[in-house]
Write a protein that binds this DNA or RNA. Structure first.
Lengths: 395, 395
DNA sequence: GGGCTTCTTTTCCGTCGTCAATAAAAGAAG
DNA sequence: CTTCTTTTATTGACGACGGAAAAGAAGCCC
């Protein structure tokens, strides 16, 4: 195994410094005055926080002198130097591992995929280590060092403890993944639920920037949901939240693997759609791609399946909006390949079922390449790095 | 109009002091060491925070020396002196006003009810003023002074601005109620949504004490829901949240006044139940009380109506649990008069529809006398008083 | 080159909370 | 009856942090 570089500590000890850095990270180049206003702090505090960050190379002065007002001393915006530090993000599914190398601004610099050799902890860890090694080489070529590794797993994950409590796809229970991976890779490791990781990425680097209340809904094999309330990602008292996939939208609907009937996932999940398309056409349909193709060829009955799926998703989103009143809902996921097939139904069902001001919620779709999941994992690593609450690799 | 007493300022300027006071308020008598542990502060901080609070009379040393361990210096617990300050809580419905006088510990000391003379702002304000005056007299008899007034109104309320954005029952739009009432009564006024006010009361003085994630579901004329996430009451980006009443539980269900079908409220709201009981029995049924009576007399078809209502409520609660993963759900409201008629169904439907760990959520029912709504309003006033973010009466 | 405006930095200061040492209040031991 | 032990509370020194205000800096305009 390659020896990873020594890990630095981030020179933002105080809450204010951390907050200012995050503000600049999310809102791009900012003058000190603007940063102060955005973070609700005094300009003096910004100067004090920024200085060590510039000295350490995490921030740089931006000499973009355009659109400057003609009067007064020119502003001196600062921005994050993305190349200053690199991070790894790994998404583990039931079949494969997707890994990305990102910079500090969470831009993807390299990526790798690897089919899963086996689902036992040992095998998965070995596969992760292999991809990590490859990406560490890419990092060397970029002339920067990797400061953390984020791993995203679907299921019940305790981020604080770095433990995968239960993963249905991997059939894992109480696996201390952060500790294990830290020992294997020699990097600080953050482990989180995949949808929450994606939500963090949206919150810091995507369409959730600056919003204190929003939701991310992922449409794919499952239907997931990440929630941000009061500016924080919701984890629930028992580590599980955002199970929009198992919100009942039709008590008379099809049975779901969860034991209930008419869950969103039982109508709009990938498996459910494939099953319904098969039933409607009487043809062999292997996967979602084929189902979409049939729909686009206007095979009778297929579009109706997607319409029903869109309706279920729209109702689910309306439920979230009615309960939490988010400012925005970001719909994402592999399932958006079929976007044109149900976008209208999502919108209609949402509008119909959203109550009062909840309808003012902004619903947008955002196509999501699969690497995005891994990028989410990297975002959690960046978050941990900045908050300096890294679980130290214990070896 | 009686001259109300001058308003004091609460001697807990620092966040830590405020937090320690709140901790003692919610958790009853606490030794300084315990309070420190609970609030996550040093014992020294507690001593410093407690001293001025004792001097000002808000805290008193409790000399309850029972169950003391036999060794070491005896602990010296402190508790809040409820009688030190009084508060008024007013709940305004479409028909009447309920007002309570509480002490600092939010114990009800006196209460009044008054049918609404009219629904226009002027008339309602006059009625509020009348009840406030009466209760200020009671306050004099108790030998303490009133430090704030809380008003709870159903609908879309902006607490920070003290404005009722929209109240369907009163047909109000953008009424600056806090300012108006402050001028009329000469007290600091806090205005909040009624369900949120009740949630605050549960959070500080009820079954939500010590929980960072829980929900309050009210069953009555409407079905409401207050949410606490990350220890804070959720208000939503547009001021509306917790609309569990308009979560769809059966797309084939009865039409709701909100324009949708199969909302929880359209099945389990008071009006819906009365309508269904009428249809099932063919009898004249005036209100919920009669409907409950019919059910208790085992009139055919009536119990089924309640069973359906319980199922709808249970599903709604399961939806909340699936999305937010609260630690507890507190079911409350006037509708609980029919508690025995649907408690079983609520529980069954919840268990069936709750996914994974969400089912570990603790669902409890809590009968709620109508004054409790007004007590919730008082709780918001207490909260404002302690946080010292009182909107000053501007006159 | 002053004057003006706006952004940034510096210096000083008050606040707050922790640390570590000390005091206090018992019962237990001798 | 004194001293020790144990636990709780208080004190005072200290350091960190962020704000206020004033000074400095860097342009444009005349």
């Amino acid at each position: 195994m390659r020896q990873p570089p020594p890990v630095e500590t981030f020179p933002a000890n105080t809450p204010a410094a951390s907050q200012i850095f995050t503000t600049v990270l999310s809102h791009g180049p900012l003058t000190r005055l603007e940063a102060a206003r955005r973070a609700g702090l005094s300009p003096a505090a910004v100067t004090k926080a920024v200085k060590p960050l510039i000295e350490a190379g995490y921030l740089v002065e931006d000499t973009a002198d355009e659109g400057r007002p003609t009067l007064g001393r020119p502003a001196n915006p600062v921005r994050v130097d993305g190349g200053r530090a690199l991070f790894l993000g790994v998404k583990v599914t039931g079949d494969e591992i997707i890994a990305v190398l990102t910079d500090l601004c969470c831009r993807i610099r390299a990526d790798r995929r690897l089919p899963l050799a086996g689902r036992d902890t040992r095998s998965v860890l070995a596969d992760i280590a292999r991809l990590v090694d490859e990406l560490l080489l890419s990092a060397d070529e970029l002339g920067s060092t990797v400061q953390g590794l984020g791993i995203a797993v679907s299921g019940d994950v305790d981020r604080a403890e770095g433990v995968v409590r239960y993963s249905p796809f991997l059939e894992w229970r109480d696996v201390p993944l952060a500790e294990l991976a830290a020992m294997t890779c020699g990097l600080p490791v953050t482990v989180d639920n995949d949808v929450r990781a994606l939500t963090v990425a949206e919150q810091w680097f995507g369409e959730g920037v600056g919003l204190s209340d929003f939701a991310v809904v992922t449409v794919g094999a499952g239907i997931g949901c990440g929630l941000v309330v009061h500016g924080r990602v919701v984890s629930g008292a028992h580590g599980v939240a955002g199970e929009i996939g198992h919100v009942t939208v039709d008590p008379a609907g099809p049975a779901c693997h969860c034991g209930n009937r008419g869950c969103v996932e039982a109508i709009a999940g990938e498996a459910a759609i494939v099953r319904q398309v098969r039933a409607a056409t009487g043809r062999q349909v292997a996967d979602a791609t084929e189902a979409v193709a049939l729909a686009h060829r206007a095979v009778p009955g297929v579009r109706e399946v997607y319409a029903r799926a869109g309706e279920a998703i729209g109702r689910g989103i309306a439920t979230v909006a009615n309960l939490l009143g988010p400012e925005r809902v970001i719909i994402s996921g592999e399932g958006l390949a079929a976007h044109d097939l149900f976008a209208g139904q999502i919108r209609d069902a949402f509008t119909a079922a959203a109550f009062g001001s909840a309808a003012r919620c902004d619903v947008l779709t955002r196509p999501l390449p699969f690497e995005e999941w891994a990028r989410g994992a990297a975002a959690t690593a960046i978050q941990s790095f900045i908050s300096s609450d890294h679980p130290q690799p214990s070896r």
